[in-house]
Write a protein that binds this DNA or RNA. Structure first.
Lengths: 287, 287
DNA sequence: CACGAAACGAAAGCTGAGCTTACGTCATGC
DNA sequence: GCATGACGTAAGCTCAGCTTTCGTTTCGTG
């Protein structure tokens, strides 16, 4: 493609619109400019190509033979371009909002509320899927992530962070276990054997983690349920177990020194689809 | 076509060039702008479509999946446009220069010199054809006319006049006829019966045209030849019969009151092909 | 592995292509 | 005729698009 050899695209556009409508004035209306602008553009194109393209015919304008030929080419070419743009927009509008998550909160707090989002934004599909922490959102085609940020998180330059809420980590257990008279140091703890991060949290309270009896449930999804049933103590952010605490299904253990977690949305910087923005905005309303 | 819905064509062009070359810098070179201009245009397009189209990959740029799809559409669309322009230019460059003429001078003076033009402008075809005086050049596809203008000619607004030369009408006859002792009033005149215009010219000298003996040769092309052979007196512009006068084949009759003719090129205003301009320029050099 | 070449990124400011405004002329319909 | 709505032209404005400038990143190389 020899772009330097082409006349200005705006003059081609003006001629195309003129050819379609058979009138400078109508073309101007379609292009959102005055008839004078169209006239000048077409005259300029004629001068550049050194070909007469249009001829006055009374109150209207007719194309010359050369103009007809050019108009056919432009019609087809610009039509293809317009169709491509339209197809892209269509595909983007339909495309599902892909959310990656590594946090329990997404599954326990966000997913149960999804019907509310669908009610407010019909036609927007949302897919939530787990994926490793250190993922490149843009490269892997995710529209956003829901993450739990520890303090001291630094924002990457190509990502935008929107905090959703800060929630303290609390130690909890079933009322029956709390009433057993056991000191937290002697309780069983529902913590996966490999979960060094949660173990370190508990260590922060002063307990000797090396002497704790750990109950490995295997799946994080079932740990809260295990705590409710009295299988052991555990940790969770307050927002997750708030309902259980209020209902008396769980009680707090009087431990201090646990961290505070910030839940946040991570969005890749750059252009953002309306559907993505809508979902991000909705997320911020439910916290 | 909904032109208002399309992004700016220049940003589409910038993206297309980027997609072809895989580099902002190279695209800028092709478009004759800096890399920064291309970057801005592509970012603007991404923002307008709310789609990421490109992604940095080290020192170069790669298209996203959406970018690839758009690039295909643009490639095809702009390719069609470019092909249309190229075809138009090609056709215009090849097209013959059509010259219409109503004057004897074109046939006697210009056509014999055409080989000189062809030598100087190889590849430019010229077609000279007679047609009525009152023709609309643009409408009938003529590139120029060669006309004889009487004094007091007024230029039409859509035509440009380029004078070639002014030449007085002279009355001439063969030396034998001049030496016969006959007064011009009594000579036979080589003038077509229907040629009221030439008869009026002669009337301007004071002769009584109603009493003239007219010799109707039928074809204007042969009238000068008839004069040379002594069949009668006649009129012609000086430039046409100059060679005959100098060679003594014809002599001037001492009549006054004949008009002066301006030979000129008539060109339709507006865009003009290079070949047409070349022929017009050449015509001005040979007078 | 330091260094230079060649990209891309971002922001500030300039400029001319493209537009509006303003006023004519001309064709058409009532 | 006269109102209406097209096109033609020219003068001048304005902002989209460009250049400039400087910084960062990536790669190839001795």
């Amino acid at each position: 493609m020899r772009w330097r050899d082409l006349p200005s695209l705006s003059s081609l556009r003006a001629f195309d619109a003129t050819a379609r409508s058979g009138s400078f004035a109508e073309a101007g209306r379609q292009l959102n400019v005055t008839h004078a602008a169209v006239t000048q553009a077409v005259r300029g194109l004629e001068a550049e190509l050194a070909v007469q393209l249009v001829r006055r015919a009374g109150r209207t304008v007719v194309l010359t033979e050369a103009g007809e030929r050019l108009a056919r080419a432009l019609d087809e070419g610009f039509g293809t371009v317009a169709a491509g743009i339209a197809a892209l927009r269509e595909a983007e509008a339909r495309r599902v909002v892909r959310v990656t998550t590594t946090t329990y909160i997404a599954e326990t707090y966000v997913m149960p509320r999804l019907p509310d989002f669908w009610a407010k934004h019909p036609g927007v599909e949302v897919a939530m899927s787990p994926s490793p922490e250190k993922i490149d959102l843009a490269r892997d085609g995710f529209d956003m992530a829901i993450r739990a940020l520890t303090d001291g998180w630094t924002e990457r330059p190509d990502e935008e962070i929107r905090p959703l809420c800060r929630s303290p980590v609390v130690a909890i257990c079933a009322p029956s276990l709390a009433n057993s008279g056991l000191h937290p140091q002697d309780m069983p703890w529902v913590i996966g054997n490999e979960n060094h991060w949660e173990l370190a949290e508990v260590g922060g309270t002063g307990l000797d983690t090396s002497r704790l009896k750990l109950v490995d449930i295997g799946s994080p999804h079932l740990e809260l349920q295990a705590c409710r049933q009295g299988l052991g103590a555990g940790t969770a952010t307050e927002i997750i177990c708030r309902a259980d605490l209020e209902a008396g299904r769980l009680v707090r253990l009087p431990l201090t020194g646990l961290p505070v977690i910030t839940y946040a949305i991570v969005l890749p910087r750059g252009p953002r689809r309306a559907a993505v923005e809508a979902f991000a905005g909705w997320l911020q309303t439910i916290f």
